[in-house]
Amino acid sequence: MNRSAAAGGTATLVASALSNQLGAATGSLAFPVMGPVGVVAVRQLVAAAVLLPTVRPKLRELSWQQWWPVLLLALSFGTMNLGLYASIQRIGLGLAVTLEFLGPLAVALISSRQKAGAFCAIAAAAGVVLITRPEASTDFVGIGFGLMAACSWAAYILLNRVVGRRIQGIQGTAAASGVSATLFLPVAVVVFLSRPVDGLAVLCAVGAGVLASVLPYVADLIALRRVPASLFGILMSVNPVFAAIIGALVLRQELELMQWAGIALIVAANVGVLLLGRSKLNDPEPG
């Protein structure tokens, strides 16, 4: 692998992370009109509208052994985004995305099976305490939604591995996006019929689908051809940092010094565990 290809892949992954967090911020602008559920519904529909005609998965040829992980993947995909966006609405972009990253961190810790991974787990736990600082006024519901997104992302990673072994190429991912969009279609209909939805809110929700689903998905596929999976996982850890910065600059969601320290600890834990077990890890990206 030459240096120019690696540098190009690295730049692509950084751009992917930036696009992902800009998409989440854009989607949050539609929360007052559509709510997190409505935004997620539109995002899922946009992702399916791009992936299905592009990949054209052979759905009729899939056996039940192939279908059941696809169905579970679709469910985890939807709950991951729903938990994240609901968390963003309550506790802000930076903290929600950081909590969500506990999911892949947990998978990495389990996969590494090294004693040094315990120190990463302790660092991550300390980071969560610094971020949440439990007290009477803490928004435990928002934190719960963030942890739901984390669990869903962990399930998404594990199910992606199963789907990748049983279905050729990315047909399984495309099929899962179609199933998820089908599940959210009635939600989108109810949202649009039950409340006045203006064009700007719809544009923000569609923008979230493009910026946070379509562009990162394409960029990550390109980057994975140029950088090792271990480097991919490490570079993905920049997402919480971008989320915190974009939340502060774009959404005026200021963080305190201790919360920044918590984000840094969780990012460091992600990088540390990936470096410890990079020969064993394979890090699929979220759709």
Rank of each mutant, 00 (worst) to 15 (best):
A208V: 02
C120W: 01
T132S: 14
V128H: 05
Q114L: 15
L73K: 00
G127K: 06
L71D: 06
I122N: 01
P186H: 08
C120K: 02
C151P: 00
Q168A: 15
S177P: 01
V163Y: 12
A155T: 08
L82H: 01
A181Y: 13
R195G: 14
T182M: 15
V141D: 12
L84A: 07
T182P: 01
G164D: 15
F192W: 10
R166W: 05
A125T: 15
Q171C: 05
G103L: 11
I122A: 15
L75N: 03
A136S: 15
F145C: 14
T173Y: 11
E100V: 13
R195L: 11
V107M: 06
R113Y: 05
I131H: 01
F119S: 11
G117W: 05
N81M: 02
C151T: 12
L93G: 10
V179G: 06
F119E: 04
L185D: 05
G146N: 10
V187D: 03
V191N: 04
P186I: 11
T138A: 05
R90Q: 13
Q168Y: 09
F101Y: 14
S180Q: 14
G127M: 12
S137M: 08
P196T: 05
L95F: 07
A149M: 07
A118W: 14
I131F: 02
L105W: 05
R161K: 15
V187I: 12
L130N: 14
R166M: 06
V191C: 06
L99E: 10
A176Y: 10
A116D: 09
L185N: 04
A124H: 07
R113M: 08
V129Y: 15
A150Q: 05
L200R: 13
C151N: 03
V128M: 12
N81I: 03
A106I: 04
V128I: 15
T132H: 00
V163F: 12
L75P: 01
V189L: 13
A86Q: 09
L200S: 14
A176R: 10
V191H: 03
G117N: 07
M80Q: 10
M80F: 10
V179R: 02
I170K: 12
F77C: 00
A96V: 06
V70N: 02
R113H: 11
I167P: 11
L147N: 11
P104F: 05
P134C: 13
G92R: 12
A86G: 00
S76A: 15
R161A: 12
R133K: 14
P196W: 01
Q168V: 13
P134H: 11
A175V: 03
P196H: 06
A149E: 08
A208H: 09
V197P: 09
R161E: 10
A154W: 01
A150L: 07
L82R: 02
A205V: 14
F140P: 00
C204P: 00
G103Y: 04
N81D: 01
G94N: 11
T182E: 03
V197H: 08
V70P: 01
A108W: 03
M148Q: 08
S194I: 02
F77V: 03
A74K: 02
F101M: 09
L159S: 07
P196S: 09
A149H: 03
I157Y: 06
T132Y: 09
L109F: 06
G199Q: 13
G199F: 09
I157R: 02
D198Q: 10
